[in-house]
Computed example of a mutant assay.
Amino acid sequence: MTELAVLARLSADSQHPVEQLVRHPRLPLVAGTAAKSRLVRVWDCGGGRLHEFAPVDLGPAREPDPAEWWRSETAPPVAWHPEQPLLVVADGSTLTRWTPDGPSVPEQVSAAYLHLAFSPDGRTLWAKPSGDSSDALDLATGSAVPAPYWDTGVAVHPSGELVATLVSDQSATFCLFARPGAEPPAAMRQLRHALVLAADGYGTPLFSADGRHLAVRGNAYVDSLDVFAFPSLRRVLTRTLAEDDAQRWPDENLAWGVRPGVLWIGTPTGSLLELDVETQQTVEHPSPAGAPISALTATASGDLLVAHADGALALLAERPTASAPEVADGVAVFLAETEELPPNAEYEEDLVVTDGTDTWGADADGRPGPCRSRCCEVGRHHALE
């Protein structure tokens, strides 16, 4: 069991409590967003303190296209540069760059982006508009090239050599793995081996700090949690967080701890669950603020930043403290067993997929083959039917 110590507290916006906390991968910076809010807040979490910078204020909401009414209900997409204190915020057909000196003048882009992610080298911005397309943008020159389709978000393995993202429809979701491209603007180079999940509406995958596990929060129908070992993609845990809609859990409520194999889960009662994914033992820690948790993340230094439904923030330290975990060399193992998808690949035909238990999609000579999934045997819908 880990002891949690409160390092700092801060009041935020009780009218629009933070629903997503996006941390910088290397610096003690965290951005916070909320649905129906045009304000992107930024905090410095270094040195055991919480200091709020000048936010990105996107101003009055634009009148959305009637066909995309839901845009006014979602938070602005944001992405941190992997090295620099640079945050990019999307708003319709513009991008705003934030640094500690404040936000820039918005820059015009060719599409309204729903999701953003930097490539691990920081030279390309991967951007996902609506529809079955995506772009790779070189922020230095403004040039853009079409890229393979992805949606929801991008998880970067701590080695920086592999990323994971989702491709969804109503019946199933593929968790696709890809290598970053070499020259900007460089698109993801998607790989043949993939995970398949049972529905849609999952959150962005989350690699553990040592790269040995991948957590997936979802889905549109159930408050679920699935954890897979990496690189084997063996499912080590699956759990339903809530059985009905009477107690909706926060969507952005997962954070890997500094202790290997420990996943922290924020709850609608305000407590934090400390889950050992291998033993599946759970310890409940009381609420640090007495209000339901609305978002959770782990900072680059390993502290936990918790947002509450009353607008409060709490920075927590795990004690006894642990040194940064060593990143496992699982990417080399994974890459040795797969290959890049051809251009114009058909996922249903060309992927080799696993649900964490069974693997199918390739016959004995390694070529794509018929589905042999247990979910076909029991009549469940998925994308390979």
Rank of each mutant, 00 (worst) to 15 (best):
C376M: 13
L304F: 02
A336S: 15
T2K: 04
P342G: 06
D303I: 09
L241P: 10
E348R: 07
G211S: 06
A140N: 00
P185V: 05
R374N: 07
T240I: 04
L241C: 05
H115W: 15
A34F: 10
P292I: 10
M188Q: 13
G203D: 01
S110H: 08
R217N: 12
R179C: 15
A199N: 14
D57P: 03
G48P: 03
W126K: 07
R62H: 01
A136L: 04
D365R: 15
G366D: 08
A75S: 13
T297Q: 05
C375T: 11
P185Y: 06
D244F: 02
D169M: 00
T338V: 03
Q84F: 04
P17A: 05
D91T: 06
L29A: 06
S104F: 11
C376L: 15
E73S: 14
A194P: 10
M188V: 01
V222P: 01
V258Y: 02
A61I: 11
G218R: 01
Y149C: 09
H285C: 04
A12R: 08
H193I: 11
Y202K: 00
T359H: 01
Q20D: 11
G211P: 01
E19P: 08
G46W: 04
D57Y: 08
L116V: 01
S119F: 04
V306T: 06
Q280W: 10
E3N: 09
E340S: 04
G211M: 00
V196T: 08
Q280H: 13
P106R: 02
E318K: 05
L29Y: 12
T282D: 00
V109A: 06
D245H: 14
A336H: 02
L176G: 03
S159G: 11
R62F: 08
R189K: 03
A383G: 10
G261Y: 02
T282K: 05
R259K: 12
P325R: 02
H157V: 07
A35V: 07
E339R: 06
F230C: 01
D151L: 00
I265K: 02
Y347P: 13
